[in-house]
Simulated scan of single mutants.
Amino acid sequence: MPPRFETARFHVETGPGSLFTRVLHILSEPVRLKAHGAHVTERLRQRGAPLETLTRFDPEGWELVSAEARTDTGKWVKSTWRVRADGRDWWVVIGLGNSLVTVIDVDPRRRGRGEGIITEGSLYARVDAVNAELMRGA
C-alpha cells in the first residue's frame, strides 16, 4: 500500500531549527510507545529487538537524529531517535500519537546524514516557517 502522503527527511544537525524545536516540544516527556500493526511487530521480531526497552521512550536518554515532515503541509509526522539497548544501538522511529513505526539495529558510528536529507531550498524554508508558526501557537 503506497503512503498517504510524501515526506521529506531533515537531520537534527542541519535543521530547520523550528522543526526540531517542535519535535522536542511534542516529545518532551517519557512515554510508553504503542507498538501496534503488522509492520512494526514483524520488524521487532525479525531484528530481535528488546520490546520493553524500545517502547519506553525517554527524551533524557535518547538522542534525536532526524525528523520527517509532510511535503504538502510542512508538518512533522515522525522522528528517528537513537538509543542503546541490550548492547546495541537502535534507531527508533516514532510517529504521531506516540506510535512506534519501526526499529533499526544500527552501527554506533552511523549518523543518519545520507543523501536523502534536505538541507536547503524552498521545501526547507516552508517546513521552517510552518513549524515556527506552530510553535508560536503552542
Rank of each mutant, 00 (worst) to 15 (best):
G95Q: 07
D128N: 15
P3Y: 08
S28C: 14
V83F: 00
E63C: 03
R84Y: 00
M135E: 11
T7A: 08
Q46C: 06
R47F: 04
G95M: 07
I104D: 03
V127T: 13
L24G: 12
I26A: 11
E52T: 02
E42Q: 12
T53C: 00
A35W: 03
R84C: 03
H39Y: 10
F10R: 05
G37L: 05
R4W: 12
W62L: 02
R9Q: 13
A125H: 12
V23T: 11
W90G: 01
L100V: 03
P2Q: 09
R109P: 01
R4A: 14
V130A: 13
P59K: 06
G97I: 06
D58Q: 03
G121P: 05
G121W: 05
E13F: 09
E115N: 10
T14Y: 07
R70W: 05
R88L: 01
G137D: 15
T80S: 07
A8H: 05
L134N: 15
R70T: 13
V83C: 01
D89P: 00
H25E: 14
V92C: 00
D107L: 04
D107Y: 02
R111Q: 08
V12P: 02
P30R: 12
R84S: 03
G114E: 09
R111N: 06
K78Q: 13
I104L: 10
P59T: 04
V92I: 02
R109V: 03
P108C: 01
V92M: 00
F57Q: 00
R22Y: 12
R136K: 15
S28V: 11
R126C: 11
G61N: 05
I26V: 15
G17R: 13
G17I: 08
V83G: 01
G87A: 00
